[in-house]
Design a protein around this nucleic acid. Structure first.
Lengths: 147, 147
DNA sequence: ACTATATAGTTCGATATCGCATTACTTGCA
DNA sequence: TGCAAGTAATGCGATATCGAACTATATAGT
């Protein structure tokens, strides 16, 4: 059984557990996918197209369409026509969206604070760095997405 | 933005990418969930109840019911009555199930072999160990599952 | 300029997962 | 023993995600 297999199994389990922990702390009505998109928009800046965001998350554009429609319905993002391309749209955070994200971050961080005491800060930082490097390699070997 | 947040974000992305890579290599008709269950049964032994397996994967028991029914339909596992509890069942791998798993492992490993050359073996092993330790901590702080 | 091809977003049908309710059986307590 | 409460599996409706098809617009080749 190859070593990489063990690594990816562990990663899948940790992702499952941390994701469940995350979703349990999110405000009512906010899904993990929506929270991820809000963070993405803050981190890399808003104004991009839905397709850009779908690619960033390696998820089908129809899925992103669905996630964004939920955010629009809650008034957390706005869809504006793309001035450079009539087929396209641009996704902008609303003030409400930024605020709701801050609240969500706070609630999630509160849940994480219990963990923080049980983990070595330096190890966590090291893991994040090494996983970032691994992500770059995986990203370069992406499965061609069907669209 | 807390450090743990960054770690779990990286883990989520890597899980997403490696999961997509995995599913792309699985034999036709086998889902990632089904593959996970087959591996689990080989790793920890078969004969357990559906609920045991659902807990191990931290998924709802209805989800495991669905996954198992797919495996039964393909003849990869068998459901027998639990001799110790009339409400319950036991899940057993079939010979076909073991064979199909071997085939799947081979196909997945073939996909991983491309990655192996781009990654340090010692780092991969270290990551797997550290993530295993992290998993233990997360496991001890599990979100109480609603059932 | 016109037409063929490509691309952005959405709609639709299928599957995976979840929560709730149901059924069947077990356990605990009087 | 008999009944109440608990537990295992499943059925059903809702949501997330995906692929295929569709519409509208853009781009490229002639």
């Amino acid at each position: 059984m190859p070593l990489l297999f063990r690594l990816f199994t562990e990663i899948g389990i940790v992702s499952q557990l941390s994701g469940a922990m995350l979703e349990a702390r999110l405000p009512e009505g906010m899904t993990g996918a929506q929270f991820g998109v809000l963070n993405h928009l803050v981190r890399v800046g808003d104004g991009g197209t839905p397709l850009d965001i779908a690619r960033a998350f390696q998820v089908a554009k129809t899925t992103m369409s669905h996630t964004l429609s939920g955010l629009v319905k809650q008034g957390l993002v706005e869809m504006r026509p793309n001035p450079d391309d009539g087929r396209s749209k641009c996704v902008w955070l609303t003030q409400t969206g930024r605020q709701r994200r801050e609240v969500a971050i706070g609630m999630v961080a509160q849940g994480y604070s219990k963990l923080a005491g049980q983990l070595s800060t330096t190890k966590v930082a090291m893991l994040a760095d090494e996983l970032g490097a691994l992500r770059v390699v995986l990203d370069a070997n992406r499965v061609p997405f069907k669209e």
